[in-house]
């Protein structure tokens, strides 16, 4: 039962994370291959603040501000060019952020990570608090869902799609494509920061190993499998992927084969991404009606 709660909580956190990426990837057509960086920045910001004795709520707000700020800071240079360059810049940024977490021991304790990150005090300790944490996550997911849906259905969201479909047309129609992209990345990073912060407070221990390309692939898979550019897609994708990931732990795997599990999982994720792109690039839910 507790385990089911755990799966739901992780799925919801990933749902928020995936919605944030979907804003960039699905609606604006930006290939952000380092989105985990903003998740990580959010997690570390929130963890450091609450470990320093500040209230968890403050940590969460600050994590959104810091992630959003970093997102804008990266987006401004990285988006000046179209094409695959944004993919390169974000992929490198993801790696560099991990290096930062690993090397700045004075701040992040390096590879040791940060243990003992508190939950919001009103939620309660340990397992007893899980149902409350789940409700908290559900509420936040709902809020993020409503906000992003409102946003993507607005003229702003439509303009993002124009930029995605054809940047030159966007410019010819008087839209500052760069500005729309920067705003999309900023909002995406803010929400990724929120997801990261939730993650830190839920898991209570974070280390640089939690913010690698694997997490980027995972969230990419959530968005792509669920359906890019749809509002429900990332949530569906997150639940499918996280359930798949966690269910493996229940399989009777002999101890000798334990070390094979993670690589096989990774290969499956990679293969699913490829097969999806080849066979059903729009994902489970489709953005447009035929």
């Amino acid at each position: 039962m507790d385990y089911l709660l755990h799966i739901f909580i992780v799925s919801l956190i990933y749902a928020i994370f995936a919605m944030s990426l979907n804003l960039e990837l699905g609606f604006t057509g930006l290939y952000n291959f380092g989105h985990v960086a903003f998740f990580g920045i959010g997690a570390y910001t929130s963890a450091l603040l609450s470990l320093a004795g500040h209230p968890v709520t403050l940590g969460m707000v600050c994590s959104m501000i810091v992630s959003g700020g970093m997102g804008a800071l990266l987006a401004i240079p990285a988006l000046r060019l179209t094409g695959d360059y944004f993919g390169i810049a974000t992929l490198s940024f993801g790696e560099i952020t991990r290096l930062f977490f690993l090397n700045e021991r004075w701040l992040t304790k390096g590879p040791m990570g940060l243990p003992g990150i508190p939950r919001p005090t009103w939620i309660g300790e340990g397992v007893a608090g899980l149902p409350w944490f789940l409700i908290f996550c559900m509420l936040l997911t709902l809020v993020v869902f409503i906000l992003t849906r409102h946003l993507t259905r607005s003229p702003f969201g439509r303009a993002l799609k124009v930029v995605r479909e054809d940047e030159y047309v966007a410019q010819a129609l008087g839209k500052n494509a760069l500005s729309f992209k920067i705003r999309a990345v900023t909002v995406g990073s803010i929400l990724a920061g929120l997801a990261g912060s939730l993650w830190a407070h839920y898991i209570s221990y974070i280390s640089p190993a939690d913010f690698t390309l694997t997490e980027t692939i995972l969230v990419l898979l959530c968005v792509v499998l669920g359906g890019r550019g749809t509002n429900w897609g990332p949530i569906l994708g997150a639940f499918v992927i996280i359930f798949f990931q966690e269910i493996i732990r229940f399989l009777p795997i002999p101890a000798d084969f334990d070390r094979f599990v993670a690589p096989i999982q990774g290969m499956v994720y990679g293969a699913v991404l490829i097969i999806l792109m080849l066979k059903r690039p729009e994902g489970l839910l489709q953005e447009y009606k035929e």
Partner: peptide, 27 residues
């Protein structure tokens, strides 16, 4: 097969492929 389609599809496939190959090495 993806060359003439949507660009984002091609890039996602290429990052998926890299992840696949890397984990094959780990395996």
């Amino acid at each position: 097969p993806l060359r003439h389609g949507n660009r984002i599809t091609l890039l996602i496939a290429s990052i998926g492929l890299s992840y696949f190959l890397r984990n094959a090495i780990r395996l």
